[in-house]
């Protein structure tokens, strides 16, 4: 992984069309400004992870797995 040190107000460029500017740094958080072509999707990583997880969850689960799951968490809470 490439690691670059930047101050507030400074930018990095990725390829021809993408600029990421460090807009503000405060309290352990960084505010980023992003300029990119319309066809480039920009997502917070956790949104992508959750989307993938939801799509996987919707593919379903067999009845056997379901019973196993219920037994596992049921016992786990002392039910």
């Amino acid at each position: 992984m490439l690691v670059i040190r930047r101050r507030a107000g400074e930018s990095i460029l990725i390829g021809e069309g993408i600029e990421i500017q460090v807009a503000e740094i405060s309290g352990g958080r960084v505010k980023l400004g992003i300029v990119a072509p319309a066809e480039v999707t920009i997502l917070r990583k956790e949104v992508k992870l959750t989307r993938e997880q939801n799509l996987a969850a919707a593919r379903g689960i067999s009845l056997g797995q379901l019973a196993e799951l219920a037994a596992q968490v049921g016992r786990g809470r002392g039910a």
């Binding site: 997880q53 037994a71 596992q72 968490v73 016992r75 786990g76």
Partner: peptide, 10 residues
């Protein structure tokens, strides 16, 4: 985590 393990059966 987005993949938190489930409690293990006792």
């Amino acid at each position: 985590s987005h993949q938190h393990p489930l409690p293990v059966a006792l």
